[in-house]
Structure formats: structure tokens, C-alpha cells
Design a protein around this nucleic acid. Structure first.
Lengths: 203, 203
DNA sequence: ACAATTTCACTACGTATGTATAGAAATATA
DNA sequence: TATATTTCTATACATACGTAGTGAAATTGT
């Protein structure tokens, strides 16, 4: 009993995610968003609560997409899965390999100024989620005696998250989806060195 | 034969550097810059060529300050100096340890959208300079047989630059000057593992 | 066909931006 | 002390921003 919407909500969020990913938050105006997403100003306001609301929806979409594509698969594996995750950071077509870097990194860098709690929380959730998955995978491998006991799983997972940020940052700064390759190689090699002898059968 | 300037040029650039470092480029308006630097709009335009010119001066100042404090000292050392560099990334009071991250990282992330060639070049120069210093130090150590021949010095220096970006990004996102500590520890440990037996005398 | 309802397209508004302009203020020289 | 020169303060301007409002358009139910 009403005029139908001229856009597909999910697709619009996906497009908004890509747009913010590429251009950032402040640099992307509402009028440009209309062009890039197919949304109109009215819809942005009533459906998403304005520009910031749409950004939050984009962050949630990005998180869920990453969760499905690269986080959840990591729960079934150990250190192999972690190494696979890192290799994929610089493989073309992978959801988390992009010349735009990482939406969460870009948000965190920019939002250090914007200071929105909601944006901060969304980004924090993402990084904590990534760290939890690293920790889970490493702990599983350590329980199986696949990696040495000298490895501090908690500290390692924190360090790995920071390394991921480095790869994304390098990718964006260089404008190349694989600019972070050298660090990926270093991390993968380091992870291999953590393995015990009986588990030295890298993929 | 003229009215004296009401500001100290070098000090103003230093303050502008800090201001851009904390707030970013687009988020910091000219009127706020006046308050934070002691400059006035007229001086910003005539002395620096507007906001972007002042930003370029700030980038140059940041680069030179880093060069003096942490790059040049690295030329006299080998892998020890590299490890020292990484440790300092999370030591309070160090010029390259800050809750604001790194001006060059922030610039690179933001400028991926701004698209100013001059800003891009300034940031590129910085990273190339850092990479050159890493490479020089590692090559010297390898020539002295302090690190293994299996280490690819060129690739390693690229990877280390990316790791530095990761530390800075984590520091800014977390709002803590030492949030990147776990990755620093990982890198330092990894560098130690590159040493040959006769050189295993870390500081 | 008509009315109700929702969405769309367009305009308007207040604010903020970077830059440019204009006159006042402050110094050095004559 | 008068004048030339430079810088400062203050205002103006054109543009862009996010948001809000307003009437037309498009659908469903009667």
C-alpha cells in the first residue's frame, strides 16, 4: 500500500561499503553517496539515520562479510589456517586483499579524530574478533603440540593483528592489493618456525 | 623596514606538524590551525601557500626530525640498530612512538582519496628513505656475516617497513603509544633468529 | 476509479570550509 | 617626525556540507 523503493537495501549497503572503503568517511559526501549507491537523500535519512547510520551499516556489512569469508573458516583450522589467512591478504580477488586497504583500518585512522563512539566500537569489535580467531587457532595448535610451548599465544595473536594492519596500510598507501607481500612472507615464515618437528608439514 | 612577524616560523611548522599529526588534514580547518600554531590566515597563505603548503612543510619537518632522530643513527649500526629502531616504536618519549600513530601513515591513508601528487610524493620519499636505511643496515650485517645469507635483504627491508606501518596503525587506532608492542616483540625476536651464531650477542 | 500511504525528486537552510580582499597596526629608514 | 614597507586583524565570498521540508509520483486496497 505504498510506492515501492527504488533500491535494493542489501545491494545499497554493499555499494556504500565499497564507496566508504575507497574514499573514507568525511571525504565522501551525501550527494556522491547517492550516485554511488543508488540511494536518495530521503532513504539515507529514513532508512539508515543519515550518513553516519549508513556508515555503521557498511561497517557491519564489512565485518559480516569478512567473518563469513575468512574468520569462520579459520575456526576449523590451526596454524595452517592462520598462514592461509595471511597469504590471502595479498591474493587478488580475496575479500581482504584490496588496493583500498581495509575499511576498519581506514575507519580507525580517520575516526581517531572524528571521535564517534559508535564507529570506534564497530572497529574495535572487528579487531577483537580477528584476534579471538587467531588466538583460538593458535591455542588449538598448541594444544595439539603442533606449535612450540614457548609461543605466547595471547601475545602472538595481538602481534598478528598488528601485522595485518600493516599489510592493509601498505596496500592502501601503495595503491596495490599485494604491496604487503614481503611482510606476509615474513609472517608466514615466522609461523612455520613456530611449528614443532612433528608438525612441519606446511601446506 | 616592516612590521615584524608575530610568530616563529620553525616553531609554527612544528606546531602545525603536531596538529596535522593528531587531527589529520581534512579534519583540521584553517581557523583551528590559527589557534594551534599561532599563525594567522594571511601568513598561512603568503608564507606557505595555503593550507596544503603548510601541510607539505609539516611533512618535511616530520621527515627531517625522524631522519635526525632515528634514521641517521641507523646508518652506523647493523641489525642491532634495526632492533633498536623497532623497540623505540613503543617507548614513551621516542619521536616515533605516539598515540597519534605516524603522520606519514595517516597522510597515506587519507591521501589515497585526496589524491594530491605533492602529498603522495612526500610520503613516498619518507617510506623509501626508511626502507633504504633498513636495507643498508641489514646489508652491512650480512656483509659482516652477522646475519644469515638466506635472508633476502631487499625483501626483508620491505617487510620491515610494512611492519612499522602496522605498529603505527595499531598505536593510533588504540590511542596508545605502545599498543604495537606485541608486533615489535615478534619482529625483534625474528631479527634475532636471523643472526649467525658468532653474532648472537644482542644488546 | 478513488483514496490512502509510502517513497521520490527537488529545494531550502544553517553552518563550515579555504581563499581573497581592505584597512589598521607596527616597524625601519630618512 | 614623516614615509615606506610589511604584517596583522577583520570581513567578505563562493562553495560544499548534512539535514530538513514539500509537493509530485507510484503503488495497494477499497
Amino acid at each position: 500500500m505504498a510506492r515501492p523503493k527504488s533500491y535494493d537495501r542489501t545491494e545499497a549497503i554493499r555499494l556504500a561499503c565499497n564507496a566508504f572503503w575507497e574514499h573514507g568517511y568525511e571525504a565522501l559526501g551525501v550527494r556522491a553517496l547517492e550516485q554511488l549507491t543508488g540511494l536518495n537523500k530521503f532513504a539515507i535519512r529514513t532508512e539508515f539515520g543519515g550518513k553516519e547510520g549508513l556508515y555503521l551499516a557498511a561497517l557491519a556489512y564489512y565485518h559480516s562479510a569478512a567473518k563469513e569469508a575468512v574468520l569462520t573458516p579459520m575456526r576449523s583450522g590451526g596454524i595452517d589456517a592462520v598462514q592461509h589467512f595471511f597469504r590471502k591478504l595479498v591474493v587478488e580477488g580475496s575479500v581482504n586483499s584490496s588496493a583500498w586497504g581495509c575499511l576498519m583500518v581506514n575507519t580507525g585512522i580517520e575516526n581517531a579524530e572524528i571521535g564517534s563512539t559508535r564507529l570506534q566500537d564497530a572497529a574495535d569489535d572487528y579487531w577483537q574478533d580477528l584476534r579471538d580467531h587467531f588466538r583460538h587457532a593458535l591455542q588449538m595448535s598448541q594444544n595439539r603440540r603442533d606449535i612450540k610451548n614457548s609461543v605466547d599465544v595471547d601475545q602472538a595473536s595481538r602481534g598478528l593483528v598488528t601485522a595485518v594492519m600493516g599489510v592493509h596500510t601498505m596496500n592502501r598507501i601503495s595503491g596495490a592489493h599485494d604491496a604487503g607481500q614481503p611482510l606476509v612472507d615474513m609472517i608466514v615464515t615466522m609461523l612455520t618456525s613456530w611449528r614443532t618437528d612433528h608438525a612441519n608439514n606446511p601446506l
